[in-house]
Design a protein around this nucleic acid. Structure first.
Lengths: 146, 146
DNA sequence: GTGCCACTTCAAGTCGACTTGAGGTAAAGA
DNA sequence: TCTTTACCTCAAGTCGACTTGAAGTGGCAC
């Protein structure tokens, strides 16, 4: 039998069962069936969950993700939107690269005041002039449900 | 006079006044003084706000940001932590790069089912094996306060 | 067949990050 | 001087993304 019990999905995807139920309610995933009350999942749900996690990492809301991918995991909105999201993401990536470099510099530079360090200021300035930043939220909770 | 009125900061930083007050309450920024009731700011607050926005983009919470940078904008925690954050960020950046490529591929690939496309699956798999993703939140509201 | 216990539902609670609203105040123009 | 108006405070509300709690259920080991 190829179906996964919810407990197995929890274990393998590292996502709590409450989250799986929540995602189901939102239409982001679907159980392939039930064994009694227990949800059973197609193994493909693992890829789908990875896709959702990835989308969240990229700053998309659950609603946006639901809109981007049909329940079967296939991209469903038009290619223009997808391409636009890719561009948006590309800008974010470049900004994060600057921040990473800034952090590295701050960790390495012996100067006491980083705001006076030309390197640091130049890095900062490079992003301040960019598009308004899209905040990222904290990581999800631990896989245990209780 | 070199001080900026709050209205000016709102205008230049593209951040609503309510957010500035909120950040002040959280200890993330400070007004250099008041003109009557009105807050006045040192121009350096603009850089500090850029730094905060950048930190948010990178997925750090306001509390984390407050912990990373002293009120004067100087990094204050130890270099090890800074370097660790930079590494964490670097992993995230690589994952986002994969997502960007996946989106681009989805926008360009004429195949009807992307989950069956080897390119798409390979891209996805590359991130699924990585560290659990750190979700990003939606962009901030518009600069208008009402 | 009976008990355990991981699952179930559904409503309510939490958390971070702000926003909104009511009621107040002072700088600046008429 | 008087009014306007943009700021102020403080409490409460909102939103997304989940989590928690109470009460129920049914597969599986004994």
């Amino acid at each position: 039998m190829t179906e996964l019990d919810i407990a197995e999905v929890v274990q393998r995807a590292g996502v709590p069962a409450s989250t799986l139920r929540f995602y189901e309610e939102k239409g982001l995933i679907a159980a392939s069936g039930r064994r009694g009350l227990r949800r059973q999942y197609d193994p493909a749900v693992l890829e789908r969950l990875a896709l959702i996690a990835l989308g969240r990492t990229a700053g998309f809301s659950l609603d946006e993700i639901a809109r981007m991918f049909a329940p079967d995991g296939q991209p469903r909105i038009d290619r223009q939107v997808l391409a636009a999201k890719a561009e948006e993401l590309d800008r974010t990536i470049r900004e994060l690269g600057v921040l990473r470099d800034s952090l590295r510099h701050a960790a390495a530079c012996p100067a006491p005041s980083h705001m006076e360090c030309p390197t640091f200021r130049r890095l900062l300035k490079a992003t301040a002039t960019g598009t308004a930043a899209a905040p990222r939220k904290r990581a999800p909770r631990s896989p245990q449900e209780r």
